[in-house]
Amino acid sequence: MWFFACSSEQNHVQGVDSLAKSKKASSVVTYRRPSLGKVLWQNKTLILMCLPAIVFFFVFSYMPMPGAYIAFTNFQYNKGIFDSPFVGLRNFQFLFQSGQLTLLLRNTVLYNLAFIILGNVLQLFFAIMLNEVQAKTYKKVSQSVMFLPYFISDVLVALLVYNLLNYDYGFISHLVRSLGGEMPKVYQNANAWPFIIVLVNLWKSTGYGTVVYFAAITGMDSSMMEAAQIDGANAWQRIRYITLPTLKPTVIILFLFAIGGILKGNFGLFYNLVGNNSMLFKTTDIIETYVYRSMMNSFNFSQSSAVGLFQSVVGFFIVLGANAFVKHLDPDYALF
């Protein structure tokens, strides 16, 4: 995502550049729109840089798309996706008949909102702080340390959390008891988990997002800062009036990307932290874990694909809606 943000900015710069060139030429000939081939040729370096991403999305996102048809079939292994019998919308019934849809949607959306909002605020905050730090080594080291949790697998994270919080032998339980307190049974208390899960997620993702924003800040035109400094703006004013407005497009793009997945939960995180502990489901069950629990015995590809398709289609319309809203506010910031 960050890659796109950068490259589109560069594109913009190059566009201005070529416009200037063509202006020079236009003193002799009238301006003609360059052919597609010419545009491609002119931007060959940029296109080459984009190629890996284009190939990636083509292979992993566009090529499998026709396979979504599986959601409308009674899938037979020996017949393949397209020759299996068509059953219409029958596979979509399952989620709606479960009687759990409201709870699942509520949990999924609320968690994602918490992740997106708190996550972005924290990431911005740390990115700006990093930018203000002058000591180079300190900056590099702290950046790396913050980034690290991003690479720890959810399985390990769950194990860490269990070893901290479990009632009988957990580290925190020991600590609380040695201080004479009474440790609550965290793994039997559903109300504690929204906090734990959000906290763990923030711990894992803040470093990554911080680097993204930090990169955007580094890419800012430093002359503005210098000018502001000369005019006597203090640090707070510089952040408020220069850094934050400059970051606005990046924030909006990242937000629009994130909101498309608002119905999709992070299965690895939730399933590993909560597992099949049904005492916690009230506040921790998301669409993915519910589907997993229901399907793990029957192994029904069609039905699970139907749920996935439902999430994607709804996500698609939410993105469209959010984009239209952004466009309405300020057309410059819209994705398309």
């Binding site: 099949n276 519910y290 229901s294």
Partner: peptide
């Protein structure tokens, strides 16, 4: 099948 999947969920929710 549709019922069975929801039963499966009920079982896995309460039985443990």
């Amino acid at each position: 099948g549709v019922f069975m999947d929801n039963l499966s969920n009920v079982y896995n929710t309460y039985m443990p």
